[in-house]
Amino acid sequence: MSALAGQIEALLIASSKPVSVEALAELLPDADIAAALGELSRYWQGRGMSLVEESVGVSLLPSKTAAKALSQVGGGNGRRLTEAAVETLCFIALNQPVTVKEIEIARGVKLFKGVVDALMDAGFVRASMRKTDSGRAVTYVTTDLLLEHFGLSSVADFPTPDELEDMMLQQPEI
């Protein structure tokens, strides 16, 4: 691995957030950042880490297989979402931006305020803009943390409702 790729690797490991290509270019002027990122990506391919390029920047994260093993080592210390929270999160992800009223209509039940609060506390959802019609209700959208948690690079990577229906039909019944 080249010295430049090694420097970028160290910056990515030391950073708690994705690092933008622009920031890398400022830190390492006159360097071919794209070539170094390509080299770094090839180096980590098939190993326990992977170079993830997102709209907000570049991260060095555990690969999907390593992440699965890491989750088993953790012993379940992570946050658990209720079934209502998971349903709400799925609806927001697929239909964003949405209001609480739209979620309630889609789910057919009144939404407990704590559900959206729990999703916001987890960092998966944030309040967005207000609707311009009837009462100026707050809308909710998913965050980059949700994308990162599920290994997605953009909202476009979420399955469509038709794809979800096909997946549900393929699941064996318990």
Score class of each variant (00 low, 15 high):
L37V: 06
A14I: 01
I174K: 09
Q72K: 15
T132W: 08
R80T: 15
A137D: 11
L27Y: 06
E87D: 14
G57K: 04
E54M: 14
F91E: 03
F158L: 06
L27K: 15
S41Q: 14
E53L: 12
A31W: 01
G57Y: 04
V73F: 12
G114A: 03
D32M: 00
F91Q: 09
A93L: 01
T160W: 02
A122L: 05
A118R: 11
E163R: 09
A14L: 10
T142F: 03
Q171S: 08
L145T: 09
G135K: 13
S63W: 02
P18S: 10
L111V: 11
E22L: 11
K113Y: 10
A118L: 11
V155N: 06
Q72Y: 13
V21C: 01
L12F: 02
A69Q: 14
G6I: 04
T88C: 11
L60P: 03
S63N: 06
E148Q: 13
A35Q: 11
L24M: 15
G108A: 07
L89C: 06
P29Q: 04
K131Q: 15
D32G: 01
T139I: 01
G38T: 04
P97I: 05
R42E: 15
W44C: 00
L70G: 07
V155L: 04
A122G: 09
D32Y: 03
R47A: 07
T99Y: 02
P29K: 01
E22R: 13
V21Q: 10
G38Q: 06
G78A: 13
E163P: 00
L146E: 01
L94C: 11
E87T: 05
